[in-house]
Design a protein around this nucleic acid. Structure first.
Length: 271
DNA sequence: CAATCAACCTGGGTGC
DNA sequence: TGCACCCAGGTTGATT
């Protein structure tokens, strides 16, 4: 579910809500999602304070006062909710971190693909983060982007979503960016012209910024740290619009499968 | 090396 | 109503 804008929204929320709070405990009814194990994580984090929150790609990192880090990946249906202790149980809550100030950080996840992982120090974190490609709103210039596209003959949409090549772009924003750039998602990446690459990079930034502005896309499961929906789903250009009129011509949005993922585009104006 | 696909899970929707 | 099947914002690891 969550792509860069959704994870960034949660990062900003958590920065306001839990920084400075002390960790009092952790429980789970889904042990596989806590790594390396609940016992080890509990021992490492209880008593520490939350120092700061960061995001890299779709991975959240909670930096603790004792130098350790909790890395959290939400995968498809993960949520991170900050609640008062007596707030009613959230749907699919599986990991509960109790905090000072009568608060809880609840990790909820319908499909249980997400995880909470203890990272021992900055070195171990760096190793993990080294796998990710550049950040599109930060680190990705046209030169790098052209080189990334030129490096593969796979469909351009698959390259946009490959976290090793570019980090943070997922299915929703990849579809919408390709629509704005008027590029067919099936085109081999290396066949994208320099002119098209320039446009594509611009609109990737545009859709991600729109996603952040609207506090994420709550098409199905996404909620921010206070349990509120985002609004980007009201501004989808192609995602989930199969059979509906293209916003740019008199064609209709078509859905195909690409790399096993639902892919939405207008065959009439995306060339 | 690239491409494809199953696997990890649960629940909602559809069609028979 | 029941059941089989397909689909879902992500990533990884096995297999062609």
């Amino acid at each position: 579910m969550p792509e860069l804008p959704e994870v960034e929204t949660i990062k900003r929320d958590l920065s306001k809500l839990i920084v400075g709070h002390k960790i009092l405990g952790i429980t789970t009814d889904s042990p596989k999602q806590v790594q390396p194990s609940l016992t080890v994580v509990k021992k490492a984090i209880v008593g520490a304070k939350v120092k700061r929150i960061k995001r890299r790609a779709k991975l959240l990192q909670i930096f603790l006062s004792n130098g350790q880090i909790l890395a959290i990946h939400l995968k498809m249906t993960g949520r991170l909710l900050v609640r008062k202790k007596d707030f009613p149980k959230d749907d699919w809550q599986h990991v509960i971190i109790s905090l000072s100030g009568n608060q809880e950080l609840r990790f909820a996840d319908l499909r249980k693909f997400g995880w909470v992982k203890l990272i021992k120090d900055k070195k171990e974190l760096e190793k993990l983060l080294a796998e990710f490609g550049p950040e599109p709103l930060d680190d990705l210039d046209l030169k790098k982007f052209r080189a990334i596209l030129a490096s593969s003959g796979r469909p351009v949409k698959i390259i946009l979503m490959d976290q090793k090549k570019i980090s943070g772009v997922g299915n929703i924003y990849a579809n919408d960016a390709l629509f704005l750039a008027k590029i067919d998602p099936r085109r081999p990446a290396k066949k994208i012209s320099d002119q098209e690459a320039k446009k594509l990079l611009q609109v990737i930034e545009k859709v991600l910024k729109a996603g952040i502005k609207y506090r994420g896309a709550s098409d199905q499961y996404y909620l921010d740290a206070l349990g509120r929906k985002g609004a980007y789903q009201e501004h989808f250009l192609t995602y989930g619009r199969e059979g509906k009129k293209c916003f740019d011509c008199d064609g209709k949005v078509k859905k195909i499968k690409l790399g096993g993922r639902g892919t939405f585009f207008c065959p009439k104006c995306q060339k």
